[in-house]
Design a protein around this nucleic acid. Structure first.
Lengths: 160, 160
DNA sequence: CGACGTCGCGCAATAATATTTCCGATGGCA
DNA sequence: TGCCATCGGAAATATTATTGCGCGACGTCG
């Protein structure tokens, strides 16, 4: 599905990243076209897979999650079946919010949340005891310096 | 601002996390009340800070970001002013999407995106040369096993 | 026990938006 | 030049958002 985004598409993506609940009328006003073509573009961007969904962002601390921590996991076996098994395991753990398979020493990096330290410890204990897990190193986060779920657009004039 | 969320509030948060662009009519239907009180609850949740915003999620690869990588940064000085300076630096870098201050050996963990490896290398070079940075270790992500921006609700019956 | 105040729901009315339909302008191309 | 594909916008209609208001549940207190 070849697709070429023009300047208006980019502005639509930018605006919807910043406020995903914006009305189509307002969005159209901001990107400089009338509502009908604007809506058509949004639908097209959704169908073409550029927009994968819409989320309300919640304040985790306000909801009782005081702890955010990372866990670095080494497995005993990196056979594909074992990797997949670990991934499936991790997906079943609600407190693990992200899991990345890494190149290099560490096999997986997990971002976890927990209401308190002891819950986090319980999670780590479980992880450590899971099949094929060799060891788990953890680090607590002290503070979040930047957390911007927005994808930068305009790859061209990109200052590193 | 004391606030007690009831079951309906929880369901609202859950639904809006899954589809932040859902109409209020549909949301009301799902949580089992009529639209006016539903809208009032959403507004209240926003004003009380439980909902901090709405985002469209974009497909990063589709937009040209092939690389996601982590960078682990050690600083020479951990004096508060130096930490803050590094945080400010990092916030000015569009390719750094997240930055966490950690306890333990590593001072900061950065999640970065880049259109390709050489751009990522340029970013790392810049980071390495930044003031107060002692060293930077990087890991590429091979794949993303889980990435769920949704905050789990219902702390009580929480299976770790 | 009953009056009263509070709270939160839902109905009904109105204002705004979303969505569809259709038409016209534009530009590529034979 | 004439045809076709593309895309925007006006207008009409269907849905939603939003406001105003009354009602009933519930708890407090005289």
């Amino acid at each position: 599905m070849p697709y070429r985004l023009d300047a208006i598409d980019h502005r639509i993506l930018k605006e919807l990243q910043e406020d995903g609940r914006m009305t189509n009328v307002e969005l159209a006003r901001r990107v400089g076209i009338s509502p009908p073509p604007c809506l058509r573009r949004v639908r097209a961007l959704e169908e073409a897979g550029f927009i994968t969904g819409y989320r309300a962002l919640l304040d985790e601390k306000r909801l009782g999650y005081e702890v955010t921590a990372f866990a670095m996991v080494h497995l005993s076996s990196q056979a594909e079946a074992d990797l997949a098994a670990f991934e499936a395991y991790v997906r079943s753990k609600p407190l693990v919010r992200e899991c990345w398979m890494l190149s290099g020493e560490i096999d997986f990096l997990l971002k976890c949340v927990a209401p308190n330290l002891s819950t986090f410890q319980a999670l780590v204990a479980e992880l450590t005891g899971a099949p094929n897990v060799r060891n788990v190193k953890t680090t607590l986060t002290l503070r979040n310096s930047k957390n911007d779920p927005i994808v930068p657009l305009e790859l061209d004039r990109l200052a590193v």
